[in-house]
Amino acid sequence: MLKTIHGSALPWSAIAEGFVCGTEQVRFASAAQGIFKPAQMRGVLSVKTVVPKPGGRVWYHDQLESDAKLATATDTLAYAFKGTNPDDPQNRLLRGAMDGRLPIIYFYGVAPGAYEPIFPTYVVDWNPSDLSVKLAPKPVADQATLWMPPGAEERRYALRQVKQRLHQSSFRERVVAAYEGRCALSGLPELRLVDAAHIIPDSDEELGQPDIRNGICMSKLHHAAYDADLIGIDPDHHIHISERLLELHDGPMLELGIKGLKGQVIRLPREDQLKPDPERLALRFERFKKAA
């Protein structure tokens, strides 16, 4: 069974493990190929979008091409051919998936080594002049409708849902990776107990984007306290605790886990381009002071 890292993203190790069909082990995808057909199948099983490892830095901020395409998509997702030859066998597999109305899995990379599976997804346009296809997720499919690609209205609805999920997942994965999987306040290193906290809520259209600099990795406890303005972080990265919590006396978790953080400096990513945006921190800290 596929297992998530945190949120709903899958580690590559789970995808590479595959599944058992009869007596054979079948892979879900290939590390070397974006368009994948297992030897045991006649048609394509999956496609994937890879997020490069941090060495290239292209997965930070809005530099990732797939993110830019996702932002402007309205009813389908563009997926590039392999190379420049439309008649390459792998590209013809995509044409076969469209002609056969074949449901496939789209493993969308949200961080290095982490993928969101989108299923069922259908190839609804094969365009050799643009060297690309259009992929359309379907919101719901059962045995009776699995071989029926979504209509126009279904495509728009499904893509809205997928975009929200992908934005949330990519934001979480990238922020947690920037902080090396540790809570910036307590140092807790357990991936299943940390979140990516927004500095400016995503409801703010101007500054609430899922930019890595709009996030801080926090344990679920500290994330909840931060969202409730019971914890504040100033532009110099110092931790502030609301008077409401400081006046409470109720066990070691409160005393050590929250109140004991007052005045400390949060743990920061090693590289400057990953650190919290000072402008966002200042705006959010003003909100904390008003709440206090």
Rank of each mutant, 00 (worst) to 15 (best):
Y108A: 05
Q143P: 09
D142P: 03
A111V: 07
P150Y: 00
P120S: 01
G151T: 01
V133Y: 11
L102T: 12
D142V: 11
L146V: 02
K134I: 01
P128R: 01
A136E: 05
F107S: 12
I105N: 02
D130C: 07
N127V: 05
L135H: 06
V140Q: 11
D142G: 06
P103W: 04
E154V: 02
G109N: 03
E153N: 15
E153C: 09
E153S: 12
D99N: 08
P112M: 13
P103N: 14
G109K: 02
Y106N: 07
I105E: 05
W147F: 15
L146D: 00
I105F: 15
M148E: 10
W126L: 06
L146A: 10
D99T: 12
K134D: 14
Y108P: 02
G151M: 02
Y115A: 00
P103R: 00
P150C: 00
P139W: 05
V123K: 05
I104H: 01
S132F: 13
E116G: 05
A144W: 03
G109T: 07
G151D: 07
D125C: 13
P137W: 04
A136K: 01
W126C: 03
Y122C: 07
P137N: 10
I118L: 11
P139R: 02
V133A: 04
I118A: 08
V133P: 01
M98E: 10
V133G: 05
Y115T: 01
Q143W: 13
S129A: 07
G100C: 09
V124K: 13
Q143H: 08
V110D: 09
A114I: 14
G113Y: 02
P139A: 11
L146M: 10
F119T: 06
P112A: 07
P103K: 05
K134L: 11
S132A: 15
A114N: 15
P137S: 06
L131E: 15
E154H: 09
P139D: 14
E116T: 11
Q143R: 14
P139C: 12
I104M: 03
